[in-house]
Amino acid sequence: MHYTPLPYLDPGSGSFIIQIAIAALLGLGVALRASWSSIKKYFGMKPKSEDEDTDSDNVQD
């Protein structure tokens, strides 16, 4: 099944497939981290801030 609209760049078949495989693995990490921070929160520990919108983390500073 195709997506609509199709991308204007060819994302490459191999790139698509490998990306999904790698990301499935990496997504687990994100999920684990999220659960870990909610466990910490439950026990009253302050989770590490991941807010990208605070500008202070602009990578180039």
């Binding site: 990306q19 999904i20 790698i22 990301a23 990496l26 997504g27 990490g29 994100v30």
Partner: peptide, 16 residues
């Protein structure tokens, strides 16, 4: 290759 819709969650994309 036409991957299935829903093939990659937002969480997985963030991980990538």
């Amino acid at each position: 290759v036409a991957p299935r819709k829903g093939g990659m969650s937002k969480q997985a994309l963030t991980g990538l």
